[in-house]
Nucleic acid binder design. Structure first.
Length: 269
DNA sequence: GTCCAGGTTAGCC
DNA sequence: GGCTAACATGGA
């Protein structure tokens, strides 16, 4: 499939730490999402893609968002963000499946991207069905029930203390917790998600932002905490809570985008 | 050996 | 409510 596209930066989108199970081989990117493999590359204002099964690639990359230009204009007004927006315009917020996103960010806590990738691939190998497309082979991300049925297999995934969080959350998700039945309000939805083991303020914000369609979360990790302190408070350190409140107050409904640009910019400077 | 990594939690005040 | 130490593991 070919499609003409404006304001899309595939590289920045994939490299900005929202999604972990992807790999670049030559000029192609292979992304494993759920039980599908998506093959995609970007050539200026065009994307070329296909997938192992039916998959809405434009929806996944938020390319149907009619407000993107306006959002960029809005957050770009902020002096500290102007450079990030100029440099990475086209960075999109990916829309993942809630369970997979939740599991991913439970694994992300106090870790690093390289290791998170290895952890998630191990989990997929332990439980997930083998899938193959265009010579690229991987494993589907397992259902919560698959993990809940046999949590012992997490032992070999190198998750450390996160193992018990993932096992417990898999159990809850496979036995009643329903992402589709969450309240519409950010605060209420967040409160419910935080009932899950291993899901605190930051991971909850990531889940709401990267999988549930909320755009106002401002997830604060060590990078964002430092960046906000340095750029906006002329201080070397402020609390995570203060950084989150600042982000949401300053950027409102677009805080999620602002955070993602800030994060990617900080990590690459 | 020491330090750090897209934090969360339990235990304390 | 806010503050702290503990939590497993791997790489620099």
């Amino acid at each position: 499939m070919h499609a003409a596209i404006n304001q899309f930066n595939l590289k920045a989108t994939l490299e900005s730490g929202q999604i972990f199970r992807w790999e670049k081989i030559g000029s192609w990117h292979y992304i494993v999402a759920g039980d599908a493999i998506v093959k995609i590359r970007q050539d200026k204002n065009k994307i070329i893609y296909s997938s192992s099964k039916e998959f809405d690639v434009p929806a996944f990359f938020d390319l149907k968002n009619k407000h993107y230009g306006k959002i960029m204009k809005d957050i770009g007004k902020n002096k500290k963000l102007a450079a990030a927006v100029a440099k990475y315009r086209g960075l999109r917020i990916i829309k993942q499946q809630p369970w997979e996103c939740t599991a991913s960010f439970i694994c992300s806590s106090f870790s690093n991207i390289r290791r998170i990738k290895a952890n998630l691939n191990s989990v997929a190998e332990q439980y997930g069905q083998k899938i193959e497309y265009d010579g690229y082979s991987s494993h589907a991300f397992p259902t919560a029930a698959a993990i809940a049925d046999n949590p012992a297999r997490l032992d070999s995934c190198g998750l450390g203390y996160r193992k018990k969080y993932l096992a417990e959350t898999a159990k809850k998700v496979s036995s009643g917790f329903d992402f589709n039945a969450l309240p519409r309000s950010y605060g209420e939805a967040k409160k419910q998600i935080m009932q899950l083991d291993g899901v605190g303020e930051k991971v909850a914000d990531c889940i709401l932002l990267f999988s549930l369609g909320f755009t106002e979360p401002f997830p604060v990790d060590v990078w964002i905490q430092r960046a906000v302190a340095n750029a906006y408070f002329k201080s070397s350190k402020i609390s995570a809570k203060a950084a989150a409140e600042f982000g949401r107050r300053t950027f409102g409904k677009n805080a999620g985008y602002a955070q993602q640009f800030l994060y990617h910019f900080e990590r690459n400077k």
